[in-house]
């Protein structure tokens, strides 16, 4: 089950008195699928990184009962390990490892007793994403779509209640992107995961419950979609 998100008076400073992002109020229910769009440099990725606890900010970001900004760096990291899966535009896989090892990457820093279960989940995710037969192949031989599927399996291997995706389809051709969007949306809905996806891709944002529009570091639009 996903986590609900409550943001209030969030300000992400950019140094020299600049403000990268200012978000007075935002509430998302658990399991919501939310798209974030806006022009380049508007602060979309900044929002995503702030929600992952990777940026210093003022105000409040509350995931469920956890006030993220009050946590120290290592506790935030632990929170991320347990609760947040991340997907990036250029996949960020370890090219030297096979698909299975990439998907189960986070098992490497989990306590020994959790590692086997984690690997099993990663392998199930790969199967669900149609890559079950290719777990032993090195990802360097994969297509972009396949790589992003491995990245999704990795993000979901810990059964994190929150999935943050940064332009997940931007490096893919249309057909691959559409297949990936289907898979991502189904997986998120089936598991009740809260999904926040920054994207220029209307095919993706149209499948979300809500779409936020960010321009110049401020939230200018918050619309429910037909999905």
């Amino acid at each position: 089950m996903g986590l609900p998100l409550t943001i209030s008076e969030l300000v992400v400073p950019g140094g020299k008195g600049r403000v990268l992002l200012s978000l007075p109020k935002l509430e998302l229910p658990a399991g919501a699928l939310v798209g974030v769009r806006g022009p380049s440099g508007a602060g979309k990725s900044t929002l995503l990184y702030a929600l992952a606890g990777l940026l210093e900010a003022e105000g409040s970001i509350r995931w469920g009962e956890t006030e993220l900004l009050r946590l120290g760096a290592e506790r935030r990291t632990r929170f991320r390990a347990d609760n947040i899966g991340m997907i990036f535009q250029d996949f960020l896989l370890f090219e030297e490892l096979d698909a299975g090892a990439n998907a189960a990457l986070t098992a490497l820093f989990r306590p020994r007793r959790e590692r086997a279960a984690m690997r099993l989940r990663a392998s199930k995710r790969l199967s669900a994403l149609g890559l079950g037969d290719h777990a032993g192949r090195h990802v360097s031989s994969f297509s972009g779509g396949e790589r992003q599927r491995v990245a999704i399996a990795r993000a979901m291997a810990a059964e994190a209640p929150v999935l943050l995706a940064d332009e997940p389809t931007a490096s893919l051709d249309r057909a691959s992107a559409d297949r990936l969007i289907d898979d991502l949306v189904h997986l998120a809905r089936d598991s009740g995961t809260t999904l926040i996806a920054v994207s220029h891709d209307r095919h993706l944002t149209d499948r979300m419950d809500r779409v936020l529009t960010i321009t110049d570091g401020a939230l200018l639009g918050d619309e429910a979609t037909a999905a």
């Binding site: 992952a52 990777l54 991320r80 390990a81 960020l92 490497l108 820093f109 990795r154």
Partner: peptide, 16 residues
């Protein structure tokens, strides 16, 4: 550096 940052983003402890 990107791989290191990725590990941190995925929740790898500093010691890892």
């Amino acid at each position: 550096r990107r791989q290191i940052a990725l590990l941190r983003a995925l929740g790898a402890p500093a010691r890892f």
